[in-house]
Structure formats: C-alpha cells, structure tokens
C-alpha cells in the first residue's frame, strides 16, 4: 500500500521509533480495539487510541454524560451533558482522527450480549465501573481467546493487568469471585481523584499499542497497582492457576451468566 504524505506526517513520531516503524503503524491501522466503558478509564484510552491511528475502535456504554463525570472523564465536555457517552466519545475521536472507523454500542454489558459485542476485536479494554462486569469481561474474553487489559481505580488507587488467554494468568486466577456487593464502594460513594483516571487509562492504552505492534513486554502475569498519594507503584508477580475456574485445567465456568448484582439488574 502506498502511504500518503499526510499519513506519514501524522504518525511520524511512531514511525521514527525503531520498534514501531512503518510496519507497526500499519498494524495499528489494521487493528480493531473495543473499549468497554466510556468513563474515567475509557476516556483517555479512546483519545490515545484515536490519536495513535487504531483503525477500528468500538466503544460501549449505556449512560448519558452527567455533570459529575466531567471532573475525570476527559473525552466529554460540558456541552455534551445529556448526550449518550458513546456519541460524545465518538465525536471527539473522529475530531482527532477523521479516518477512523468508530463503532458505538449504547448498551449495558450482559451475559446475553457480551459474546456478540466482543466478537471480531483484536483486543478489549476493561474500563467498566463494577466487579460483576469485570468478571464477565474476563470470562468472555478468556472463552473467546481475546486479549484484554483489566483496569480499576478508586479514591487515590489504581490497578491494572493485561491478560492474554491461554498464555498468561487471567483475572480469575488472581481474584476468584466478585467481592460482596456491600463490601465495595463505588466511585460515586467513595470518590476518586480525577487525574488517576488518566494515569491508569494511559497505561491501558499503552498496553494496547504494545500488543498490536508487538513492542516490548506486556503487563501479563503481573498486577500493577499504584497509590497516588504516596505516588508509589507496586508490581506483584502472578501465575496462571491450574485450578482457575475459567482458564484452569478443568474449568467449572463454561458458560456466561450474569452475577446477582450485575449492573444489568441494578439499573434496569
């Protein structure tokens, strides 16, 4: 393919990188990445993937933009209040990079639809705000063999890990089941420092770009967490568990079901 001068100039800072080059940029152009959640984490991921020229970006979120989102969900602007988050995010991604294909899904993620939604994507980014859906994303991605980046933030803390099904530990190898619903506060109850959404989301976006281009070592078999008050980062080595109920030797979870406290049930 003959690359246009504007393509080469837009992506020149990638192409100049020895590890990325023209070939890496063409891989990004051909890639399909799905962002689950257009909130604090999904916002920076969407902006950086669009800027990086990931050719096809899917984004899922049921919600409308609210005033309280704007403190951290930097893809949404004041004028977007009341609009579907996926539409707001799509508009910004295309404003950065009009050549992209952006697919929007204004829906909740449920056992009934996740298989269909993730089908065909090369990589999935977990930017959802509740544990049952994080487990659902893990289970569906492991079953479909689609790599994904787990991410979560609360107050001043963030954690992330990258899962390559069949090759590295999955979320359930580390955390077997969702915590009891009354044990975990949400961002709306506990608060969250806005900028840590950017800290964690940009780590996730970096993992996407590394996976697609094949550059470097992924955050697999490793749980990275940080505390922004002390600004300390911790890497915990983790291993695939032969007894893992999803990716272990004798899986007991073989089909997708909604957890009791699923967002689908809570909000409908």
């Amino acid at each position: 393919m003959e690359l246009s001068d504007s393509y080469l100039e837009r992506y020149s800072r990638h192409i100049l990188l020895h590890d990325v080059g023209v070939e890496g940029q063409e891989k990004l152009s051909a890639a399909k990445v799905l962002i689950l959640g257009a909130g604090g984490l999904g916002a920076p991921v969407a902006l950086y993937l669009a800027a990086a020229g990931v050719g096809t970006i899917g984004i899922l979120d049921h919600d409308l933009v609210e005033l309280s989102n704007l403190q951290r969900q930097v893809v949404h602007f004041t004028r977007d209040i009341g609009a579907p988050k996926v539409d707001s995010a799509r508009q910004k991604m295309l404003a950065i990079n009009p050549e992209l294909i952006v697919k929007t899904y204004q829906d909740y993620l449920c056992a009934a639809n996740i298989r269909e939604v993730i089908d065909g994507y090369d990589f999935v980014v977990d930017g959802v705000d509740n544990f049952p859906t994080k487990f659902l994303i893990n289970d569906a991605c492991v079953m479909a063999g689609i790599p994904f980046s787990h991410g979560g933030i609360l107050r001043f803390d963030g954690q992330t890990m990258t899962v390559v099904p069949g090759r590295s530990a999955c979320y359930r190898c580390v955390f077997r089941t969702p915590p009891p619903s009354d044990a975990v506060p949400t961002c709306s109850q506990a608060g969250v420092l806005g900028a840590i959404a950017g800290m964690l989301g940009t780590i996730q976006a970096t993992e996407v770009l590394k996976y697609i281009t094949g550059v470097g070592d992924l955050l697999t078999d490793t749980l990275l967490s940080f505390n922004a008050k002390a600004m300390t980062f911790r890497r915990v080595a983790i291993k695939r568990q032969p007894a893992c109920p999803v990716c272990g030797e004798r899986p007991t979870i073989t089909k997708l079901v909604d957890a009791e406290q699923s967002v689908c049930d809570l909000k409908r």
């Binding site: 690359l3 080469l8 100039e9 020149s12 192409i15 100049l16 080059g21 023209v22 070939e23």
Partner: peptide, 13 residues
C-alpha cells in the same frame, strides 16, 4: 528533519 528519516524508513521498509 525528521520527515526525511520517516521517508527513508518508508523506502527501506
């Protein structure tokens, strides 16, 4: 610079 290097890399690729 740096587009001359970008074009050199494109040709080499």
């Amino acid at each position: 610079c740096p587009m001359n290097l970008v074009y050199t890399k494109v040709e080499l690729s």
